[in-house]
Every structure is written in structure tokens, then in C-alpha cells.
């Protein structure tokens, strides 16, 4: 029997597989091990579930609910803005130029975005000046680090609308004109055209956009740190605090594991619901 020759070509897979194995697989396994007491940086390493037990005493739920709330609200507001914006830009002259301009916030670092929004929402910022000038408020509103997270929400929307637009616009633009014309010939108005043609055809892209934005915001550190409420904050902030303020890397690893699990569960649920909705619409 002829011995099968080794295919050297498989070695070409090494860079990609190596990256996945080393930087994703190994990192996740290390984090999971750290969450149960192994890989201690400074002391003895041994199996322990104490960190998981203790996790639920470190305000984890408040931070989890806040992370979910800000991620869900910001993603939904973004998609609600992006659809009409895409349709408007699509029908505008020089649409490519407008699209390029609208993408600019995506390339601005999160910290700079925070400073920009601070100028708008600050105690003596533009919004309070306008509202005060119109006589709508007697005392300036506190919108930065406010307990409801208005500042963080506004910043997330400002930062993520262009990202979502990038995905949704190309999908909206690709809806064939003859399909829309056929709908019009059959007497459909603008709203019905959107509801029965554009939305079902672009639903997969919209889902991808919402899911990616959700994950980005759910894992956010910077914007919530600068603009978010004093308490609670995102899970990333809680993780950072446990690791760097209390030097408790094991609990930080538990939070990291739960962040990943929560994101996977939520994304799966959303995808399932989205697919059902898309089937119903089509």
C-alpha cells in the first residue's frame, strides 16, 4: 500500500490557525482557568470556586443590567436612525459624498467623542444653553455622569450610527429599483414599500449591524468610564476595577467569562428572533 504523502500546503494554514489557537483559544482557556483559581500571578494556584461565589457580591447584577440596558437601547436607537438616514442619503444628490461625511465619527477615537459630547451635554454646554435660552429650563440639566446614563447613551449613538450606516446603507442601496417600481405600480405607498420590500430584503444586514453594535457597546470601557453614571457601570469597568484596584485577577476572569457567555446568549437570542421576524415579513 502506498504511503500517503504529506501535503506541505497544509502548513499555509498555520498563521491563521496559530492565531486562533494562541490568541483566542489559549487566552480563553487561560481566563477560564484563572476564574477557578489557577494561573495566579502572585501567589499559590489551586482549584477554588470561591471567586465565582464571591462574584455575585460585587455588584455584578447592577453592572450586568446596565451593560445590557445601554447596549440594547443604543443599538435600537442607532438602527432607528440608520434606516431613514440610509433612505434619505440614497435619494440625495452626491450621495457618496454625504455618506463619506457621515462616516467621519467612526474614525474618531472614543475619548475624543466623549470630549465632543461633553461640550454639548455639559452643565454649561450647548444643550443647556439652548434650553435655558428658550426658557425651557430654570437650572441647567446634569447630563454627564447622570444616573440614567443619558450622556453615555448619546455618545454611543453618535459613535455607532456611522458604523451601522456602513453596513445597512449598502444593503438598502442594493434593493433593485424595478422591484420598488413594481410595488409602486401596484399602489404601495412609501411606508408600505419600506415595510414590505426594503425591510425584509435588508433584514439580514440590519441584524448583523445590530448584533455587532450590541457587542461593541456591551463590552465598552471608555465611554462608560468617562460619560456613564457614577454607578453602575459596564462589566468591563467592573472587571478593570477588580483587577487593578483590588488586584483580584481571579474575580476579573470570572467577569470576563460571564461577559462572553452573556454576549453569546444574547446574540443567539436576537438572531433567532430576527430570523423568525424576517420569515414572517417575507
Amino acid at each position: 500500500m502506498k504511503k500517503k504523502k504529506f501535503e506541505w500546503g497544509y502548513l499555509l494554514l498555520l498563521p491563521g490557525l496559530g492565531f486562533v489557537a494562541l490568541f483566542l483559544g489559549a487566552a480563553i482557556v487561560m481566563m477560564a482557568l484563572q476564574s477557578v483559581g489557577f494561573l495566579n500571578f502572585t501567589g499559590e494556584s489551586s482549584f477554588s470556586m470561591e471567586y465565582w461565589k464571591g462574584l455575585f457580591q460585587v455588584n455584578f447584577y447592577d453592572n450586568l443590567i446596565y451593560s445590557l440596558k445601554i447596549a440594547v437601547c443604543a443599538s435600537l436607537i442607532c438602527i432607528a436612525i440608520v434606516y431613514p438616514l440610509s433612505l434619505i442619503v440614497k435619494n440625495m444628490p452626491w450621495s457618496k459624498t454625504w455618506l463619506s461625511l457621515l462616516k467621519i465619527p467612526m474614525f474618531i477615537p472614543a475619548l475624543v467623542v466623549c470630549l465632543i459630547i461633553t461640550n454639548v451635554l455639559n452643565y454649561n454646554g450647548i444643550l443647556n444653553a439652548v434650553l435655558g435660552g428658550l426658557g425651557l429650563i430654570q437650572e441647567p440639566l446634569v447630563l454627564r455622569n447622570d444616573p440614567w446614563g443619558v450622556g453615555a447613551l448619546a455618545t454611543q449613538v453618535w459613535k455607532n450610527v456611522p458604523f451601522m450606516l456602513l453596513i445597512v446603507y449598502s444593503s438598502v442601496e442594493s434593493v433593485r429599483k424595478d422591484v420598488l417600481d413594481a410595488g409602486r405600480n401596484l399602489g404601495a405607498g412609501r411606508l408600505r414599500l419600506f415595510w414590505e420590500i426594503t425591510l425584509p430584503l435588508t433584514m439580514p444586514s440590519a441584524l448583523v449591524a445590530v448584533i455587532m453594535t450590541f457587542i461593541k457597546i456591551f463590552n465598552d470601557y471608555t465611554i462608560s468610564r468617562v460619560m456613564g453614571p457614577i454607578y453602575p457601570s459596564t462589566l468591563s469597568n467592573l472587571m478593570h476595577k477588580q483587577a487593578y484596584l483590588y488586584n483580584d485577577w481571579h474575580t476579573a476572569a470570572c467577569i470576563g467569562c460571564l461577559m462572553m457567555v452573556t454576549a453569546v446568549i444574547f446574540v443567539s437570542l436576537y438572531t433567532w428572533l430576527g430570523n423568525r421576524l424576517a420569515k414572517q415579513l417575507s
Partner: peptide, 17 residues
Amino acid sequence: TFTTSNGDGISRLNSGE
């Protein structure tokens, strides 16, 4: 009023808050 950093307190004082 709880502030997020030492510097944040000074900037809030400067803004009149």
C-alpha cells in the same frame, strides 16, 4: 455631587455646577 475623578471636581466647579 459625586465626581468621577479629582480633575472632574475642579472642572465642575469651574463650570458653576
